[in-house]
Design a protein around this nucleic acid. Sequence first.
DNA 1: TTGAAAGCGCTACCAA
DNA 2: TTGGTAGCGCTTTCAA
Lengths: 333, 333
Amino acid sequence: MVQMPNTPTSADVARLAGVSRATVSYVLNNTSAVRISEPTRRRVHEAARELGYVPHAGARSLRAGHSRLVLMPAPAFPVGPLYSRFLGELQWALGRLDYTVVQYGTVGLQGDDAARAWAELRPVAVLVPGAGLGPRGVAVLKRAGARAVVTLGPERVEGAHALLMDHDAVGHCAGAHLYARGRRSIGVLVPAESGLESFSGPRLAGVRHALRGTDATVTALPLACTERAAAALAARWAGSGLDAVFAYNDEYAMLLMRALQDEGLRIPDDVAVIGADDLMLGRLLRPRLSTVRIELPSGRDLAELVDRAVRDPGGEPEVRKVLGASLVQRESS
Amino acid sequence: MVQMPNTPTSADVARLAGVSRATVSYVLNNTSAVRISEPTRRRVHEAARELGYVPHAGARSLRAGHSRLVLMPAPAFPVGPLYSRFLGELQWALGRLDYTVVQYGTVGLQGDDAARAWAELRPVAVLVPGAGLGPRGVAVLKRAGARAVVTLGPERVEGAHALLMDHDAVGHCAGAHLYARGRRSIGVLVPAESGLESFSGPRLAGVRHALRGTDATVTALPLACTERAAAALAARWAGSGLDAVFAYNDEYAMLLMRALQDEGLRIPDDVAVIGADDLMLGRLLRPRLSTVRIELPSGRDLAELVDRAVRDPGGEPEVRKVLGASLVQRESS
DNA sequence: TTGAAAGCGCTACCAA
DNA sequence: TTGGTAGCGCTTTCAA
């Protein structure tokens, strides 16, 4: 293939259409303040199409002093169907509001370094799931022109809007349920894999919280996501005296449940098991897996929050609790 | 919080450090062509830090005529651990080569429109998984300065490098296996959900391909990812005469296997079941699920391909088959 | 060793 | 209704 000539600019379009660059800009942006005659509009569109002209987002945002870019760090771990749906909805809703959503491939970047890297793109808004962004990071982003910084995480950050995802509530829900079912010696599965601490920690704390002041005990059980690790944990189970377990999520629950069954333990008679996230697979297990269903905010709501914040950058940061947790009891507890 | 003053520019840094903008640029970019005295360097760094200066990526790429941005469309569906790991590896490897990886939130954009939207960001390289990018889209991107366009999909696209992911091979592997196990009436589960056609189609075709010229029959079985749909399919099973099924992946396999078992069918005696993707859950089922393991290319290799292509934009497009499929036989087939 | 200045592509103000 | 043009932040060539 022949190497293409230079990238066409609006000047090229203007030349081909026989008009000025200003006119091209007016036409292509549908500027309402100026009225361009229909024939001229046609000529400009024609020329743009013929040249395959695509505007340069960087140049535009340089001139305008701001962009329509909404930046999110890309999650570093495999993300479940729940969060995936939320993300899709959010992107769709922001797209409708004429924002461009981009997930930044955060590789080894941490804290303020990450914030600086994001700031180079001069996003108009930044959405940060999880912990990891501090007040200084927020300040960096704001100074770089971000008109809205929103965290989706366990706690609010100075200067940023916050959608509080209180995973504590998930653990609390599970703990209270197991207690109500008469269990008193409760294990909590905590993934040994790193990257999930900001979810697993609060979930564990939630169980502790639910059982504080009762006669029940809570034991943290680190577990790697492998059969071997699960089998080893199950082999130690008899001596542990635990009569119930809250797994980090349904997948870990399935892993452990299988290992316990292979060890000859009956569920729920010997051990009650409950997961979280209400994945399809829980309904396919036997016994059917009890779980904590989690409700994320609607992507549309979050998109509107972002838009509002962008339009009114001076406003007070909104802080909202958005994570619902409800029990789905099936057969395993 | 007080509204921050304007975003600091390199001119602000220069002013504070008492030097020219040129010097600031030299220092902050470690330009080797010019030597700046140590005290000056220190003053510049100091000033930049004090102001919280972050360079403007758009302005830089405008001036330079190119960026270090690698763009990928964000997948629209929940992505498995396999692909997720691949993605992480790729981002890490590209990061090491000093590229910035960004996933573009493709919402409702299709084909050439999507390509144009991506082109606005003037990425130096574009990686497109799946089908959906045509030769015209490739041309748009190249004219907008993309020095490498790489597709990861079923077939090559004119003008772009191609990593051929031949999902045909997955189906072929499963079909051949089931035939070898003596099965002659083979169903193939095809997700009813849209967005997966570019994977499910070739997988089905692969089974057909493996059994062409034999006495075996192949039947496509559309299935929505719900218990009800699976139960309905299982209820019809006895009359169908099918003695084996290749599910789209392990999750669909689990869904159907459970429904078949609930219907009283024995696995593998009455029906052999095989999945794909070798997910953890397959090993936890009883009987243990046979599966087709898929090997994706290493992220590092792909990163190197991208880097090579960027450095030598004139080179012939590379076309490489990268999808390995191998059988993992367990108990369900 | 440092500074002055041009110019990347684009939009918006002002003039015609 | 259209055109001329300044200037957004940055790098790099040329001069000092």
